[in-house]
Amino acid sequence: MDIISQYREQFVTHLKARTQMTEPRNLYEPVHYILGLGGKRLRPILTLMTAEVFGGKAKDAMDAALAIEMFHNFSLVHDDIMDDAPLRRGKTTVHEKWDLNTGILSGDAMLILAYQFFEGYPPETFKKLTTLFSNTAIEVCEGQQYDVDFETRDDVTIPEYLKMIEYKTSVLVAAAMQMGAIIAHASEKDAEAMYEFGRNLGIAFQLQDDYLDAFGDPKTFGKQVGGDIMENKKTFLYLKSLEKSTKEDQESLMHLYSIKPKDAAAKVEAVKSIFKDSGAVEATQTEIEAYTQKAFEVLEQLTIPETNKELLRKFGENLMKRTV
């Protein structure tokens, strides 16, 4: 078994032990449901891996990893409500399986539970972890608001979009890695470098997610393929298409993003065709590679053994080859 699978298995065991079902069931059952849907467990794995990279123990980072995973899943429950999404990881979303009020309340409980998982750390470590966590949590909310705002704006720029995905997605990846470094008592410089590694990798990860949302395989992707297009989300693919398309295709794309037709599949295919013809697909893949390389450059600053740098590099490479 490879090391990533080992981290995942250890984390899932810890998650099950620390999240026992209790009353009222209608509050906690949805929490267990969303946590049990699986997923890549990317963020908690990064917390555990980073702790060991700096000479700490994975078991000491388990509760911080759990806080990150709980918060991430809380944000998914509320995102799915905002997007009116029917599927998450190929399964019915919480608000569809139960109802809207349950989705809101169970999500709120998950946010509070996330903070409780930090309570077992020594005071100084607790302060560092919760300060980082609070800063990250508010940035995730800011990123989500930018995302919502962009749906009704026709003047979104690529720098604005990159800031939005940094806040909505990559800061949580970055914080997950910095937490591992904090728990392992890494130097402040190394802990901040790990944050930068995670931030750049997180942006690459989200750009890859945008690409897979349009061009991924529905069997492996887990979410509804074309969901971003149906929701008129101004992704990197969309913004690059506007930048690089013919005037005719620009007008077609803007029209398609102003409507929500009954035949959603036809709209998705028409938009994807413009994405391809404009060269936006290649531009997106180039950007993914650029941010991945930025992350790898940060690794050179770290005062850790070369074998540990290689482990992080390999993880990043595998992440960019994913189809899910």
Rank of each mutant, 00 (worst) to 15 (best):
I3E: 11
S5T: 15
Q6Y: 10
Q6T: 15
Y7S: 08
T19E: 06
Q20W: 06
T22N: 06
R25T: 10
R25Y: 06
N26L: 13
L27I: 07
E29S: 10
H32T: 09
Y33R: 07
G36H: 05
G36C: 11
G39L: 04
L42A: 05
R43A: 03
P44D: 12
I45V: 03
I45A: 03
L46G: 03
M49T: 12
E52T: 06
V53C: 14
A58M: 10
D60N: 13
D60T: 13
M62W: 05
A67Y: 05
F71T: 09
L76R: 03
L76S: 10
D80K: 12
D80M: 09
M82C: 13
P86A: 04
L87Y: 15
R88M: 05
R89V: 13
K91S: 08
V94G: 05
V94E: 01
K97A: 12
W98D: 11
N101W: 04
N101V: 14
T102K: 06
I104R: 00
S106H: 11
D108Q: 13
L111E: 04
Q116E: 15
Q116A: 15
F118V: 06
G120T: 09
P122F: 11
E124C: 08
T125Y: 14
T125I: 09
K127F: 12
K128G: 12
L129N: 02
L132G: 05
S134D: 13
T136P: 00
A137P: 07
A137V: 03
I138F: 09
E139Q: 13
E139G: 08
Y146M: 07
V148F: 10
E151M: 14
R153N: 11
D155Q: 05
T157Q: 15
T157P: 07
T157A: 14
I158P: 07
P159V: 05
Y161T: 02
Y161N: 05
I165R: 07
E166Y: 02
T169E: 01
S170I: 01
L172R: 06
A176Q: 02
A176M: 05
M177G: 01
G180P: 01
A186D: 01
E188P: 06
A193Y: 04
A193T: 15
M194F: 09
F197E: 00
G198F: 02
R199T: 04
N200A: 06
G202Q: 04
I203K: 01
I203Q: 02
A204C: 08
F205G: 00
L207W: 04
D217E: 05
P218W: 07
T220D: 08
T220E: 07
Q224I: 10
V225A: 07
G227L: 08
D228M: 00
D228Q: 08
M230T: 13
N232F: 05
K234N: 07
F236H: 08
Y238V: 00
Y238S: 00
S245L: 06
Q250Y: 03
M254F: 05
L256E: 05
K262W: 06
D263E: 15
A264I: 15
A266L: 13
K267L: 06
V268A: 01
V271P: 09
V271F: 02
K272E: 14
S273A: 02
I274N: 00
D277Q: 12
D277N: 10
A280D: 10
E282Y: 03
Y291C: 00
Y291P: 01
Q293K: 11
A295T: 08
L299E: 03
L302E: 02
N308G: 14
K309G: 11
K314V: 08
G316W: 00
N318W: 02
N318H: 03
L319F: 04
L319C: 15
